[in-house]
Design a protein around this nucleic acid. Structure first.
Lengths: 231, 231
DNA sequence: CTGTCACTGTGGTCTAACCACACAGTAATC
DNA sequence: GATTACTGTGTGGTTAGACCACAGTGACAG
């Protein structure tokens, strides 16, 4: 077993045993190296991996943001991983879109009314109405969909949704260039968002799920995913 | 931007541009370091991250297994990430099980008859009948479920299924200790597996999905997930 | 022809040093 | 006395250089 894996194991055990909790601070790299009788290099490689997994955040200097602290950001970590695999052509964009439909439909059907995530979603819709251009609109759109997924209350599904959205984020930006008329499309998307949120608030999960599926598939079909996968 | 991130960006670009394909070999660490004008340490940190993401595999020595080659194993990578986050208590096991039900039901409903993955699944069932003990049975069970998911033909769903299974693998091992009578449970699980596969082969996706959902939820309910999350 | 042995290139590890940063305490200044 | 400037300390970030184990390759001696 390689040295940095040993360090990784040790840290994972600290987490499992509860000796290291969310928000907690790891020992300094030098201290850990001495404690585990390994070089600082190996400790750093382990920390890098944890950072890539969204388990810790490393900060220089001193004070509140300094040191290596335990965080919980699975979404961005899974997103990076998926993005890399998309780059290797191993994960087709079409499969990601299909998975998005699957997860978001499920989430829409089970979204709980009155939770903070839904209020955030409603707020985002207002901001999207005021968005002047595509580059302002798209990030809000992404956040709306992730907020909707969070409303279902399953943290794994939320994380996966966020990661899927993140993995094809750049891609979505390119796709909008293929659209014949952005203003028309944008208006339609906004209307569909409202309809989805209304269905959820009316406790009509089935309809919400249908609308979400049509919403996502409609966008990618219009933008030409499948027929024109890598423009 | 940190140095190793720069290296990561460079490698990701090589992948996106197709200059580096699946099965391809990265330049040696020393060569890359010189080419990018960074230290070998930074190159190594980048490679570590890619390795953790299941994008590359590093092998010492020389010959076919040597060097750093591009692979595509998103499943194990996502699994490690999820496992770590379960360790931080940020992702409840119950949410993972729920997501498994969601993905596997979907996959069972859309499984294509006649694909290699289904044949593999059938073969695994025979091996499970011959399994002498739990420790032989469980890995086969895991592979059966992943094979079933693969039969639906969506690589993202397959990868996520494999990762979910991997994230709670150790956990499943502990749970079987809670079962009152393993032999009885095992016989039931085997029968349920057969029923699922039969439904799929009969093109009865709806029934297959129902059976899968009941199968998974039944097992975890019997083993006590939810009422006894961290024994 | 065969077995041995040095060579070469790979990743894996370690040491020791320096840097930039941010805060904390202290000293000099107004 | 209050304010400012300055070290001191500890953090991660980066680098250079060395050595190790490993696995093929090829030359050489038998």
């Amino acid at each position: 077993m390689r040295t940095h894996e040993l360090v990784l194991q040790w840290i994972e055990k600290q987490l499992s045993d509860g000796d290291l909790a969310l928000g907690g601070r790891l020992p300094g790299e030098r201290a850990m190296a001495e404690q585990l009788q390994v070089s600082r290099t190996s400790v750093r490689e382990a920390v890098r991996i944890l950072e890539a997994m969204g388990v810790v955040r490393a900060g220089v200097g001193s004070g509140k943001d300094a040191g290596t602290v335990v965080i919980a950001e699975p979404g961005s970590a899974l997103g990076s991983t998926l993005r890399l695999h998309v780059a290797t052509r191993h994960l087709p964009v079409a499969d990601i879109v299909e998975t998005r439909v699957l997860l978001e439909s499920w989430a829409a059907e089970r979204a709980k009314v009155g939770v903070p995530a839904l209020e955030e979603a409603a707020e985002l819709l207002d901001q999207m109405d005021a968005a002047p251009d595509i580059d302002t609109f798209l990030p809000l759109d992404a956040r709306f969909h992730v907020a909707l997924a969070r409303a279902a209350g399953n943290s794994v599904v939320s994380a996966m949704m966020a990661s899927l959205r993140g993995a094809i984020e750049n891609y979505a930006g390119e796709l909008t260039g293929n659209l014949p008329d952005w203003d028309t499309t944008c208006a339609r998307l906004r209307a569909e968002h409202r309809a989805i949120l209304t269905a959820v608030n009316n406790h009509d999960g089935g309809k919400a799920a249908e609308l979400v599926a049509a919403h996502i598939q409609g966008f990618y079909a219009e933008a030409g995913v499948g027929s024109n996968p890598t423009p």
